[in-house]
Design a protein around this nucleic acid. Structure first.
Length: 798
DNA sequence: AGCACGCCGACT
DNA sequence: GTCGGCGTGCTC
């Protein structure tokens, strides 16, 4: 038998299947989807068995045997194998990258080398322990450069032998067992009653039967000592069998019951139920205003799915995978829920993943990668906040969880729910076209009105002499809530203290020497840091350009607001939530709990506070700088701005107390601000669609971007120019090719970045053209330090 | 991606 | 002559 294997070597030239012989001892257990170790070139690598067959692609004598099988149950199911192929094609990724993205990190192989001293050499004394360096990876981390060079010389000479090691978490456990190999001669046991007893039992079994030690001892009613005696006599043989690991220990949870649905909710859930009950694949766009009870729809749809013995995947943006959210699912479905998110350690993620694969749970709540949960009988996939960018993976494989979800659901003939208060333009346009089914919920469950939104023109404030970051009305409102002991949320989409430093005399701005981006001031260590390459330097006291001392900080971050708050409202208790205060595990949870308990009046934070918070006592939401994300060089900036403002506005007055929202902006007339004021998604949608149509962006056109980077500016431009003309030649006339153009950040880590954008409507050949493009630059990528990558559905234009 | 093979210059 | 530079090409 021959196995076709995708090996763990991410390169264009190895991105295909390699055939291996399946050794006899694996013939019974090997199946497509299992991980294996295989000899590849002169080392061992991990690989995935894709298929088993009997037609080798090359002469059978040249085939090497698989050296080890790592799983009994394939971690990649048949469906996922198929899916991996489709994703590879669509995202132009290496097959191995897709397969690895489907599994928890703990299951990936790690590669190392062992060094053996073959000949004593005085130069090398002290470096080897008993003639061995057990881990080359560890060694190179600590050893001085000289020693490493010395050793590489000796490897060439042959005084040191290198042995490559591959280690992988083995999902099997080796267990001692005994196998019945030879019929016993009963006559020899006249003096050994127990051995006779065991022998008689064995005679009722077939030769070749295996037992666990404990199992046989129990069945034959003897002790293990007796078994060992028969092992000595050659009747039984000891060996090691591979068995699955022990089942996972269960837990208990306190439960919640389904809530009664409003009429609107019932109308929304009915078509979903129908699709599910009739095994119909259908994608629903559940457009429900904040507080309209989307989560309850999810919960009750899942309940139906579970009742039928099927499984459910719930995707949530990483940022809102809050304990609050998880609790809602856990308290409804208890130990049937697995949770996959980045706060878990590698091992914890692996444990959760195993619960899924072993069928111990039937609901998964998780971030993007949970879309690959290895269920085999899916009944529904739900994507909450479907407009969130975090569903698009920005590194290879560049997949979008929404596309993957729809593909999986179509395989299982089951529904997908895309839920959002502010759907992406793409999804809403598809719903209007009838590709998705639109379900709309425009009322809040508890009948509270949407909070009034006040737009505050900060230009006026400035004219009236208010130079602070709080407008007079916001300050007054905050004082009012403070007096009433109500809570507030303040959003500022920028962490840190201030964003950049500038010389007032000559306009000099501190920039990173390696990237074309201004440096950010970090207050805690009084440094200037580059966001992209980590470069840091000390703050200049005088302007490096004109020697004046008028160096000032500009821009505002959460840290600075916190300080200002202390000045303006000295009695207010403030909790600041941003990447810096939530970096530690569990701190996110702790801060929110403390706010919920009323230990603070103001929750100040970046976008992470905009999603999913549901606290009854919040009656004021303030957005301090609404235009901070409006002017980014990205065609989605208006959409994102509207989404963020709507989301955060939805935090106010969700319960019996009326809430109020203040939006401070320098562009009060922009439609993304105005339509937040009127809570009018449709109006925003219409206007933004017109803009997209005019500019030729999604959803009217599809996009693909080719990114090029090189240390040499001329080279980068030259290559991108060639690519652009190649694309113009190869694609249809209706495709628009833009470029070469510099990326929005033209240089990162001393590499110049250029890009070429493709806008198209129908281009059936696109993937082939791009594939060939990549291949034709293969040589150049290998010998120069050219880097080239393609994104067939870009989200971040930066 | 590694790594061996192989062909050129600068040293004992 | 040999050591060691890195360009080229292969991995079942």
């Amino acid at each position: 038998m021959i196995a076709s294997v995708i090996v763990d070597v991410a390169a264009r030239q190895t991105d295909r299947m390699f055939d291996y012989l399946v050794p006899n001892e694996l013939a019974d257990t090997i199946v497509p989807g299992v991980r294996v170790h295989v000899p590849f070139a002169n080392r061992n690598v991990q690989g995935f068995v894709m298929k088993l067959h009997n037609e080798p692609q090359i002469a059978i004598e040249k085939l090497k045997p698989i050296s080890d099988q790592l799983d009994l149950t394939p971690p990649v199911t048949e469906e996922l194998l198929l899916l991996s192929e489709a994703i590879k094609e669509e995202t132009l990724s290496y097959h191995i990258s897709v397969l690895k993205a489907m599994l928890p990190a703990a299951m990936r192989a790690s590669y190392d080398k062992e060094l053996y001293l073959e000949e004593e050499d005085p130069e090398l004394t002290g470096l080897f322990v008993d003639g061995v360096i057990a881990s080359w990876n560890e060694f190179t981390k600590q050893a001085p450069e000289n020693d490493i060079q010395l050793i590489t010389r000796h490897i060439r000479k042959g005084t040191i032998r290198v042995s490559p090691i591959v280690t992988t978490k083995d999902a099997r456990k080796k267990q001692l067992q005994v196998t019945y190999v030879q019929e016993p001669d009963l006559t020899q046991f006249s003096q050994a009653k127990k051995q006779l007893l065991l022998s008689e039992y064995l005679l009722t079994c077939e030769i070749g039967t295996s037992f666990t030690l404990k199992g046989l001892a129990e069945e034959a009613n003897v002790t293990t000592a007796v078994i060992n005696q028969l092992v000595d006599k050659g009747v039984l043989k000891k060996d090691y069998a591979t068995v699955g690991r022990d089942p996972y220990a269960g837990r208990t949870f306190k439960s919640s019951v389904p809530m009664a649905l409003t009429e609107e909710q019932q109308e929304s859930i009915r078509p979903i139920e129908e699709a599910f009950q009739t095994n119909k694949h259908e994608t629903f766009l559940l457009h429900g205003v904040t507080g309209s009870g989307k989560t309850e729809i999810y919960l009750q749809s899942i309940e139906q799915v579970l009742d039928k013995g099927k499984e459910a995947i719930v995707l949530v943006p990483e940022i809102s995978l809050t304990p609050q959210m998880v609790t809602r699912f856990k308290s409804r479905f208890g130990s049937r829920v697995a949770v996959l998110h980045s706060a878990l350690s590698k091992g914890e993620k692996y444990d959760e993943w195993r619960k899924i694969r072993e069928g111990k749970v039937d609901v998964v709540v998780g971030a993007r990668s949970a879309v690959f949960a290895p269920f085999t009988n899916l009944g529904i996939i739900i994507i909450d906040e479907e407009h969130e960018m975090s569903y698009k993976q920005e590194e290879a494989p560049r997949y979008h969880a929404r596309d993957v979800a729809i593909k999986r659901a179509s395989y299982y003939n089951c529904p997908v729910i895309l839920g959002s208060a502010t759907p992406s333009l793409e999804s809403f346009a598809r719903a209007k076209k009838g590709v998705y089914t639109l379900l709309s919920m425009q009322e809040r469950v508890n009948q509270t009105a949407m909070p009034p939104v006040h737009v505050i023109d900060m230009r006026e404030e400035l004219q009236n002499g208010n130079r602070s970051m709080f407008s007079t009305s916001v300050l007054e409102a905050m004082q009012d809530r403070l007096a009433k002991k109500e809570q507030m949320v303040l959003l500022l989409n920028r962490r840190g203290y201030s964003t950049f430093i500038m010389c007032r005399d000559c306009g000099y701005v501190a920039e990173c020497p390696h990237c074309d981006i201004s440096l950010t001031y970090h207050r805690n260590d009084q440094s200037l840091q580059c966001h992209y390459c980590g470069h840091r330097e000390t703050i200049p006291t005088v302007c490096p350009s004109c020697q004046s001392d008028s160096i000032r900080f500009f821009g505002t971050g959460t840290q600075k607001v916190e300080q200002e708050l202390a000045k303006e409202l000295p009695d207010a208790r403030v909790i600041r939530m941003d990447v810096d205060t939530t970096r530690r595990k569990g701190s996110h949870e702790k801060l929110l709990q403390s706010f919920e308990k009323g230990e603070a009046d103001i929750l100040l934070g970046t976008q992470m506070i905009a999603k999913g918070l549901d606290f009854p006592n919040i009656t004021l939401v303030g957005v301090l700088a609404a235009d901070s994300m409006l002017h980014l060089p990205d065609f989605r900036s208006a959409e994102r701005s509207f989404q963020l403002l709507t989301q955060v506005a939805g935090r106010a007055g969700r319960h019996d107390k009326q809430g109020e929202v203040f939006v401070q902006t320098y562009t009060p007339d922009h439609y993304s601000v105005q339509d937040v004021k009127t809570h009018n998604f449709l109006s925003f949608y219409e206007k933004e669609m017109k803009m997209r149509q005019l500019a030729g962006y999604p959803p009217y056109y599809f996009l693909a971007v080719v990114h090029v980077s090189h240390a040499d500016l001329n080279k980068a431009v030259e290559v991108t120019t060639n690519i652009a003309s190649y694309l113009r030649r190869s694609l249809s006339d209706s495709a628009k090719i833009y470029g070469p153009s510099a990326s929005p950040i033209p240089r990162i880590k001393d590499r110049y970045r250029y890009q070429c954008m493709i806008k198209y409507k129908i281009e059936p050949n696109l993937h082939h053209v791009l594939q060939e493009l990549i291949e034709s630059y293969q040589k150049e990528i290998m010998k120069t330090d050219l880097q080239l990558h393609v994104d067939t559905n870009p989200y971040m234009m930066l």
